[in-house]
Design a protein around this nucleic acid. Structure first.
Length: 896
RNA sequence: GGGCGGUUAGCUCAGUUGGUUAGAGCGUUGCGUUGACAUCGCAAAGGUCGUAGGUUCGAGUCCUAUACCACCCACCA
């Protein structure tokens, strides 16, 4: 006998079960290329994890992606495919370095002070300490990844891949170094890519001032700018060549305010005549557009900014001043010099660092870039050919659109945490050496005085290689040959450009293959009011807190069910609580089934004869299995989970379990077959549910297996029990049989009768415990009603010896009448007696039925009857017949 | 400026080949401790599926227009 506690206590099971899974090696693929007996022809199912940052404070995005991927992994594993989920984490350059720098600051020192080597050592210590946290949290979430294959983006192997990739690109001239306009982050003291800049709409000012002509005429050109502090860097003023107002100035010289430098006025079509004053000051060193205009007109390029966003010696009197202070100072000086026209409020888009939040400074700097157009063209082509499919599909367009407008990618970062750029500069002959091995001396002059480029690569450079670098690329390792390309890439739509696009490009470039055939994109998780979760809004829900309170299964189920791919979702505690209740419901279903199994011990003497309820639940179970499998194949996990939920709670628990109680009480063969059916249906559902809520289902599977196997009636070798549910087989398709449709209809009629009686009981305030007498009158369904006597008695709370069925009409005096299709039901609701209310109720029902009859008759006499498919029309005819017989009986009752 | 998504019950959301009484959870109301479950059960109230057109025998579902909300890309100083 197995006694289960009344409520599911996840704390009892989660950790223990996870350990068992891991110890048994279930997370490792069944067809491991590194082991004997490996068959290279069997196709594996593979996912590489989007590596979380080692800094990783867990947020609700993590449980979402972990659950979604784990669902796919567990599904394919249960289908018997060799399944691999590669875990790992990302060094996350800037983010992690900032953490350690913060730590140093608290200790009163800086990375510059302790030096690069010591700093790197500190970084690694930090990684060792906190890197384990994130993986512990993934385990906590139930992620069934193969931890023996865990990778870190700065591992030796991955570093080798990064270096190889860089060199290959360099050799193809797809990586190049040069001075270009880049986004400089003064706070982080590094260049960042275009993607790492966010534009925020902010209240600024538009400053109008005079650009005095150099000829001393006193004439001036009015100019408007949002950034007066860049005036010292001006090397020209541009007007539209067709602009009648300013044409005469083109070719003349004007004087830069305060500094007095003579700069030319040029005509350029980029200038919008209508905006501002129609004259644009040109600062080629500090504005991307000005840079281009400057190049067109061979204007001088002056850098006036230090790396910390103070002005430099080129800014004359403002040298050393912080940029926003300089803005004010210059403006004040210009006002004094009489150059100011006016200033006005202006809503502008300010570029800010995605990471640090400070204002980004565009400036010209020598950096390393990846030339993107050829890479992007290949990637776009393979997506267009359908070699990579996006789920949901609409993201294909987003992807392609970006690919068509792609810009070169600045990959060098002035940081210390990351993959060092494999480039050395000879201090003697200034040769640039790009090498797979660390060089000892210069190949052209032989000098040993080499200096490595101090910069590291953008974190996303290594991320782009992740789907194959984790398998040992560039080596053709067994893992690489067998597991690559992977199957599905699952991640958030917010990193399509950062990551997904680059993986596709890199995969094609370095391996000649797309790295995965499907990209599944999930939405963002927001709070219950639809707001982005952020620390400043104080609306962050900590997943660990939710897991501690409600259990991992509840959290997983919440995040996946009730949402759809690619759409954002709002998560509140209430939802998690509801799903905790579901886990408990499942537990109690299991508890009942096991209780039923334990009770049965008489040997079976006859062939099984199913009751209506038996046949019905089996048919419904089969429908659910088939439907859920189709949904899984189409990545519709939310709907799949919902259907299992609905079946378990509404069909299995609310109806079948109640129906089974009497069958079990009858004992003998009836009880035995009921217990077997309970066990079988639950067994199916545990499988379907396992990918969503792995812990409670695994726990129950263990008990169910034990109970079923130790029961000499139920134990049967045809029912195969694995040691654990995680490796149990996903149910095969279960073809529906002809008889099932009729059975389902019959049971639905029963449900309708039961509901009607319950409804009336509730209206008449009959105590739930009080059994009532019922007389059924029906010509067509009399036999059926007699057959379902027990079911009706139990579910509707009827009196055993007051249950009568007649084929023909007879007067039921003062009993309360009820009509379901052609069945008249008379209930002895002794407490009542309000015949007037009764009358009203019947009249209401009649008028409802008549409305339907009218509607359906109209429908069936319309072109619908000819044009709609026969089965659809037939279904409507049946409904009409049902309403008609109801109406007829109701009229008789009412004496109309 | 271009693009994408959303608008369904008081709240949060499902609803994928268009099928004719639109679903769930939470909340609300009434009743209820019979050995699976009060983390529960039974019953009830609550929606012209943003608006206006169109296609169709039939539209929450497809098309067009429009309003509002959210997001992405671009970035006229």
């Amino acid at each position: 006998m197995t006694e289960l506690p009344k409520a599911y206590d996840f704390k009892e099971y989660e950790e223990k079960i996870y350990q068992e899974w891991e110890e048994k090696g279930y997370f490792k693929p069944t067809n491991d290329p590194n082991l004997p007996g490996h068959d290279p022809n069997i196709k594996p199912f593979v996912i590489v994890i989007p590596p979380p940052n080692v800094t990783g404070a867990l947020h609700l995005g993590h449980p979402l992606f972990v659950t979604t991927q784990d669902i796919m992994i567990r599904y394919h594993r249960m289908k018997g495919e060799p399944t691999l989920w590669v875990p790992g984490s990302d060094h996350a350059g800037i983010a992690t370095q900032l953490q350690v720098e913060n730590q140093l600051r608290k200790e009163g020192t800086t990375r510059e002070e302790i030096g690069r080597e010591a700093f790197e050592k500190r970084m690694w210590e930090w990684k060792e300490k906190y890197g384990g946290q994130i993986t512990a949290q993934l385990r906590r979430l139930g992620a069934s990844c193969d931890w023996t294959r865990e990778r870190f983006t700065l591992d030796e192997g991955l570093s080798k891949a990064v270096r190889e990739a860089f060199i290959q690109l360099y050799e193809k001239s797809l990586v190049y170094q040069g001075p270009r306009m880049i986004n400089w982050s003064p706070g982080l003291q590094t260049a960042v890519s275009d993607l790492e800049v966010e534009y925020s709409e902010e209240e600024g000012r538009l400053y109008y001032f005079k650009y005095m002509l150099a000829d001393g005429s006193g004439d001036y050109l009015p100019v408007a700018t949002t950034r007066p502090e860049t005036i010292p860097g001006d090397t020209g003023v541009a007007v539209h060549p067709d602009d009648q107002r300013y044409q005469k100035f083109i070719g003349k010289k004007v004087l830069v305010p305060i500094l007095g430098r003579r700069v030319p006025v040029v005509g350029d079509e980029y200038v919008t005549k209508e905006f501002g004053t129609g004259a644009l000051k040109i600062t080629p060193g500090h504005d991307p557009h000005d840079y281009e205009i400057g190049q067109r007109h061979q204007l001088e390029l002056i850098n006036i900014m230090n790396k910390d966003a103070t002005l430099n010696e080129n800014a004359g009197p403002y040298a050393g001043m912080e940029r926003f202070k300089a803005r004010k100072a210059i403006w004040a000086d210009m006002e004094e010099a009489g150059l100011v026209i006016k200033e006005e409020p202006y809503l502008m888009k300010v570029p800010r660092s995605q990471r640090g939040g400070e204002v980004i400074e565009p400036l010209v700097s020598t950096q390393w870039f990846v030339k993107m157009d050829s890479l992007a063209a290949k990637a776009a082509e393979s997506v267009q050919k359908g070699e990579v499919v996006f789920v949901p599909e609409r993201f294909t367009k987003v992807f392609l659109n970006w690919m068509e407008n792609i810009q070169d990618w600045c990959i060098s970062r002035q940081l210390w945490w990351g993959h060092r750029i494999p480039v050395w500069y000879c201090q003697n002959c200034h040769e640039t050496i790009v090498s797979r091995e660390d060089p000892t001396h210069c190949p052209s002059c032989g000098s040993a005085e080499l200096k490595q480029d101090p910069d590291v690569l953008d974190t996303w450079f290594s991320s782009g290689l992740w789907p194959f670098s984790v398998f040992g690329w560039p080596e053709e390792t067994p893992d690489y040959c067998y597991f690559y390309p992977t199957s599905v890439l699952e991640t958030g739509y917010d990193i399509i450009f950062f990551w997904v696009a680059r993986m596709i490009m890199d995969g094609l470039e370095f391996t000649g293959k797309v790295p995965f055939h499907t990209v599944y994109l999930h939405g963002m998780v927001r709070d219950d009011k639809g707001q982005k979760m952020s620390k400043t809004k104080n609306n962050v829900i900590d997943p660990l807190v939710l897991m501690n309170e409600y259990g991992t299964d509840a959290l997983r189920f919440t995040l996946v069910v009730g949402s759809s791919p690619g759409n954002d979702q709002n998560v509140g505690v209430k939802k998690v609580e509801a799903n905790r209740n579901f886990a408990n419901k499942v537990w109690n279903i299991g508890r009942f089934v096991i209780y039923a199994i334990d009770k049965v011990d008489e040997p079976i003497k006859t062939d099984p004869i199913w009751t209506l309820a038996d046949a019905w639940i089996w048919a419904r179970a089969k429908q659910t299995v088939n439907s859920v499998t189709v949904l899984f194949e189409n990545y519709q996990f939310g709907e799949a989970g919902r259907q299992v939920y609905e079946f378990l709670w509404n069909d299995f628990a609310d109806w079948y379990l109640e129906a089974s109680k009497r069958q079990l009480a009858e004992g003998g063969d009836r009880a035995a077959y009921t217990a077997i059916l309970l066990s079988d249906v639950l067994g199916l559902m545990l499988r379907l549910l396992h990918p969503f809520t792995p812990f409670v289902t695994e726990a129950l599977y263990g008990y169910l297996k034990k109970a079923s196997e130790s029961n000499r009636i139920i134990h049967n070798k045809e029912r195969k029990w694995e040691e654990h549910l995680i490796v149990a087989r996903w149910p095969e398709d279960m073809p529906l049989e002809d008889w099932e449709e009729g059975i389902v209809k019959d049971f639905e009629l029963t449900q309708e009768i039961v509901r009607s009686i319950r409804n009336l009981r509730s209206e008449y305030k009959v105590e739930p415990g009080q059994a009532i007498e019922a007389v059924f009158v029906s010509e067509q369904k009399a036999d059926f009603l007699r057959e379902q006597k027990n079911l009706l008695i139990d579910l509707a709370g009827l009196k055993e010896d007051g249950f009568l069925v007649f084929e023909c009409r007879l007067d039921q005096g003062n009993m309360t009448a009820l009509v379901v299709e052609d069945i008249e039901i008379f209930l002895n609701l002794s407490a009542s007696g309000d015949s007037e209310a009764d009358h009203e109720r019947l009249e209401k029902e009649l008028s409802e039925a008549e409305i339907h009859i009218e509607r359906l008759e109209k429908l069936l006499s319309s072109p619908f009857a000819q044009k709609a498919p026969a089965n659809v029309v037939e279904a409507e005819r049946e409904k009409l017949a049902g309403y008609k017989s109801s109406a007829e009986k109701l009229r008789e009752r009412l004496g109309i």
